[in-house]
């Protein structure tokens, strides 16, 4: 009797566990499916004819596949130029951030000089300054410097952000000081310590930070909208919105432009997914 209760209890537990597992799988994969729907719509619409894209009966696989919109975008708009602009801005912001942020993080954590604590304090306090508060005075500054429509108008203000310094300070702090000491005894200059010891040891954090900055600057909208005023100077995020205004009522073309603006980043994402995700995780931990 007691044995029977025992075993039936075991069976119930097992089924409960199974049902639970099935439910969780169903919910998670269901949600994932819903997450992918916007992509599916973007891809399929970008290949539709004008008529099908506007049809009240939605179709997920176009009846007639056309590359017309991609061709028109490539030939009639500056989209290639925008892609190049975005790439240059994102890359130079990334490089600049990695270089200047790692230098100051090195100075703050590995060198001993008065004032470093206050400087770090001010930099961290500037986290409180949201980007928009500065757009008006920054706009007048950039225009006084004659940098409107220039890549630098976007790159320099982006490179002033505190996030990289903050992350690198956290990381550099943890590198054992014995290494530095040994190098100093070997007669390494401070610059060599920075270049040949600290930087190589920080590869992972630098990669993660670099990726994050790259994606972040690729995607910026408000600031480039203000300082890049010439059609040829736009970045992709700005450009594709103007495409929508130019070609009234061509959802297929708009979706094709969205594809062109997002595919490069998706490729980056697929290639280095784990590193990018760890860049985000890092921000949560610190």
């Amino acid at each position: 009797m007691s044995e029977k209760t025992e075993s039936s209890y075991g069976v119930t537990a097992l089924t409960e566990e199974t049902i639970r597992s099935i439910t969780i799988h169903a919910v998670m994969y269901g949600t994932a499916f819903l997450f992918l729907i916007p992509y599916a719509w973007m891809i399929s619409s970008s290949l539709k004819t004008s008529q099908e894209a506007l049809s009240p009966n939605p179709s997920w696989i176009p009846h007639t596949i056309t590359f017309e919109w991609y061709i028109r975008l490539l030939t009639e708009t500056f989209i290639v130029q925008w892609l190049i602009n975005t790439l240059i801005i994102a890359l130079s912001t990334t490089v600049l951030v990695l270089v200047v942020d790692s230098m100051i993080a090195f100075a703050i954590t590995r060198l001993d000089w008065p004032g470093q604590r206050y400087i770090l304090g001010i930099i961290i306090a500037s986290f409180m300054v949201p980007g928009f508060v500065n757009i008006i005075p920054l706009f007048t500054l950039i225009s006084d410097l004659g940098l409107i429509n220039n890549y630098l108008a976007v790159v320099l203000p982006f490179a002033a952000g505190p996030i990289g310094v903050f992350l690198l300070v956290q990381f550099f702090k943890e590198i054992p000081y014995e290494l530095q000491e040994a190098a100093q005894l070997d007669g390494f200059s401070t610059f060599r310590i920075y270049l040949q010891i600290i930087l190589p040891l920080s590869k992972s954090v630098l990669t993660a930070l670099g990726l994050f900055i790259f994606v972040w600057s690729w995607n910026q909208f408000l600031w480039p909208l203000i300082v890049l005023q010439q059609e040829k100077a736009y970045t992709l995020p700005i450009g594709i919105v103007t495409v929508r205004n130019t070609y009234t009522y061509q959802p297929a073309l708009v979706m094709a432009s969205a594809m062109i603006a997002s595919v490069p980043l998706f490729l980056v994402f697929l290639a280095v997914q784990d590193k990018l995700i760890s860049a985000v995780e890092m921000q949560g931990v610190t």
């Binding site: 230098m103 000089w113 300054v129 508060v133 500054l141 320099l156 490179a159 401070t190």
Partner: peptide, 28 residues
């Protein structure tokens, strides 16, 4: 020596930071 090096290493960031973040904040 470390003071000088510290300042030199900090300078590029501090210049960007002061010109494009602090200064606009005050000017605003």
């Amino acid at each position: 020596k470390e003071l000088i090096e510290g300042i030199l290493f900090s300078l590029p960031y501090l210049a960007t930071f002061s010109l494009f973040l602090l200064y606009p904040l005050l000017k605003g």
